[in-house]
Write a protein that binds this DNA or RNA. Structure first.
Lengths: 301, 301
DNA sequence: TCACCTTATGAATATGATTCATAATTTTGA
DNA sequence: TCAAAATTATGAATCATATTCATAAGGTGA
């Protein structure tokens, strides 16, 4: 493949201006450069491209072909280049989000709605990142942002804090445990614990509360939806450990009660993990700002 | 405009092979070259183009954009390049012919019919090249071949002989002049000369026969069509000077008679003028061969 | 962990695009 | 028709940059 963008741009400029010298000026090159360029095409293909005549320059049929090619190719290239520039400015792009916690849907959905309004040219998508290694996917570029509460020091990734929350035990208001000022691990040995359908090693209650104390709940019941979990708890079928932002909304009008897990409570921070080189993109920063606000607002209720 | 064909070809090869090293091999470049190339794009636009991961390479959204551009652009460039190559081989092209003599239509039309059959990809056109400077037009590339009987030594132009012919005086078989063994200039002083509608200085009879003898015909009558000229002569309205190839066909079945102009006769050669750098194109040579044959055949009758 | 494979990187080199200076050609205006 | 002005062509010199070379760095899989 011999023809380069450069050649086509030159041809187009010559067509537009009608002369080498004017085209050269327009392109910030010398007339000589253009002459050499055209000659190299003509020499390479053994074909005349331009008729340099008395009054002005005309295109041979071959020249017309090249010109047609230029008209076809150059605008598309220009369009792609401006698109790439906008991508680098963070005006357009892709924000595929993986969330590691079921409960995050609660605050994430409204955030995304607002985000989409302000960044219509960013392609948004969410995946529940439990079944796969979301941080690996992030590194590989399969997703662009991971909502996680377990920052690790992976190279190329940045963990940006969104907001703090507390994992609370949600129980029926007549549950005997509701008398206690806080919950101890051993208190949960005899209960039915309702959780999302996730491996226990990926849940805070186990990782940071039950496992260290070597306690196992009597029964574990896995349920997909947050609503149903709260419903089951409200009807006395068991207890659940949920982030405070989930409970905040449903507490007033129900038979639900919450208790801290442990004397200090089980406090965590939610992070947005992004690839290092994307953390300064406008739309990424905007998303993180929106998410942090949303989280803080709902948690403080 | 930063992106060059080269970049796009590299991107495409990487997509096809899935790795830098295989793509490099395919392109007869080193892996390093491709790495530098991609890096330069990524650096120029401050955008990631490829995710170089554990298992293989994937394209970022920006990379996909570039790839799409490549798929759009590269085939078209390749097509144009093969077209240009075919042009230089003389397989395709343009053959716009200017003829300086009305009478040439007689043999040219069938020649063109045959030519078109063999060279369907050559765009053929004819113009009567009397009103304009056909050789200048040829030089400028407005036409590609001029049929002329007046070779000049213009730079860049080649005059290739087609066939010899004789300009004959056509007259009514009862015309007194038909008794003579040949026509002298003064014989035409009293006749009505029927010609094509062309300036006298562009006609052989005047240039090479009448003018040198300072003879003027009694009357000049200009007629467009060869058929009508012959009709008029056949009905005794005058005489005409026409190339022998025109007369050859209509002589048998009519009241027409021909005589040589001057003792030696007025002999000329018809040439095809082409731009020097096109004279070796296959289709040009083919046309000239066809034209020469046609002319010789018709003249020898 | 060590081979092994792939990409990245910096310096050196080679390629080739552009400029410079000027020639050649043509046009234009007296 | 001649000189002046303008245009393209050309060869050599220069400069830019694409490519290579040699090697590092990073990751995978036995």
């Amino acid at each position: 493949m011999f023809i380069e963008t450069r050649h086509l741009a030159t041809l187009r400029a010559i067509k537009e201006t009608g002369s080498f010298s004017k085209a050269a000026e327009k392109m910030h090159l010398t007339q000589s450069a253009l002459s050499h360029q055209i000659k190299s095409i003509e020499h390479y293909f053994s074909v005349d491209v331009l008729n340099r005549n008395a009054k002005g320059i005309t295109f041979t049929p071959s020249g017309e072909q090249l010109l047609e090619l230029a008209e076809y190719v150059l605008p598309k290239i220009a369009a792609t280049e401006t698109l790439l520039n906008r991508v680098s400015l963070g005006e357009v792009g892709r924000l595929h989000i993986a969330i590691e916690c079921h409960a995050c849907f609660e605050w994430l959905m409204p955030v995304l709605e607002e985000f989409k309004e302000h960044w219509p040219e960013v392609e948004v998508d969410i995946r529940l990142g439990l079944s796969f290694q979301s941080l690996a996917a992030l590194k590989q570029g399969d997703v662009d942002l991971v909502i996680s509460s377990d920052p690790t020091t992976k190279s190329d990734l940045s963990f940006l804090p969104l907001f703090d929350y507390e994992s609370l035990l949600v129980l029926h208001h007549q549950d005997p445990l509701s008398k206690k000022s806080y919950i101890q691990a051993k208190d949960l040995a005899g209960v039915t614990l309702i959780t999302y359908p996730v491996k226990t090693e990926r849940m805070d209650v186990f990782q940071n509360f039950l496992n260290p104390a070597h306690v196992h709940p009597k029964e574990i019941r896995q349920v997909e939806s947050t609503k149903v979990i709260l419903l089951l708890v409200a009807s006395g079928r068991g207890v659940a450990a949920l982030p405070n932002w989930v409970v905040a909304e449903s507490l007033n009008h129900s038979k639900l009660f919450t208790k801290s897990l442990g004397k200090q409570g089980l406090h965590k921070t939610l992070y947005a993990a992004v690839r290092h080189n994307q953390q300064d993109l406008d739309y990424v920063k905007a998303f993180i700002r929106l998410a942090a606000n949303a989280g803080n607002n709902i948690v403080r209720k």
